[in-house]
């Protein structure tokens, strides 16, 4: 099976491939040579007797080394993104993400968390004024504060005072209430709005920030 002519043909082929692949990066070149060598070995192991014609046919099927290297160059990942200058100028949106996180999740820390979010929101140069207003006004204090208010005991406090007559009978009962109570359905709707609207606004803000920073030029 180890035919000297066959070996020579394979060696010649690999030498040509090695020569043609010098344009590739060292890693890619080593990898490509190993893969083609493996392919040849696998092809030969299938054939019991690798005569010259069989080896030539096999090498023809693999193709011209120049074509293979051309395919490797074509499929190499583009280098431009790592060119100095473009990498450094590419703006991130970590500030914007931080702002949105503080406005929503951060508002669970009463007042302070949300305030930090507002400061970050207004210090970003990515959003328009109207978008910043939207982020601030929906909703003041953030969903966290709304959640906090909702869990406070009793929205309404009442005190009743009884005025007794001399005969011991209860005359009038006066009830005084402070605060107000919303109808339950309205309360639930308001609560849902207060929780969901800031999240919707957050998604809008982030998607706009991403859309604006995506092109190479800010």
């Amino acid at each position: 099976m180890t035919n000297s002519t066959a070996d020579r043909l394979v060696d010649e082929y690999l030498t040509r491939l090695a020569g043609a692949s010098q344009a590739l990066s060292p890693d890619r070149r080593t990898e490509l040579l190993a893969e083609i060598r493996g392919h040849i070995a696998a092809s030969l192991s299938g054939a019991a007797d690798a005569d010259e014609a069989a080896v030539r046919t096999m090498l023809d099927r693999i193709g011209d080394p120049a074509d293979i290297v051309a395919a490797a160059v074509e499929n190499d990942p583009p280098e431009p993104p790592s060119v100095p200058g473009t990498q450094g100028r590419r703006p991130g949106i970590s500030l914007e993400v931080g702002a949105v996180v503080m406005l929503t999740a951060g508002s669970l820390v009463p007042v302070i968390g949300w305030l930090v979010g507002v400061i970050l929101l207004w210090s970003s140069g990515v959003w328009r004024r109207s978008e910043k207003l939207l982020g601030t006004l929906i909703v003041p204090g953030g969903p966290g504060l709304a959640l906090l208010i909702a869990t406070l005991p009793g929205g309404q406090s009442c005190s009743s005072t009884s005025i007794s007559t001399i005969s011991g009978q209860v005359g009038t009962t006066r009830e005084a209430c402070t605060g107000f109570v919303l109808p339950p359905a309205l309360g639930i709707a308001l609560m849902l709005f207060v929780l969901i609207a800031p999240i919707v606004v957050a998604i809008v803000l982030i998607s706009r920030a991403r859309a604006r920073t995506a092109p190479a030029h800010p």
């Binding site: 890619r28 490509l32 392919h39 099927r61 074509d67 293979i68 499929n75």
Partner: peptide, 23 residues
């Protein structure tokens, strides 16, 4: 690589498939 190169209508040299796989 064999199956790709044997697919009807896809005339392609087997060696050029490796760079594609690598990508």
């Amino acid at each position: 690589v064999r199956r790709l190169s044997e697919a009807d209508g896809m005339v392609i040299s087997e060696g050029t498939i490796y760079p594609l796989l690598s990508r």
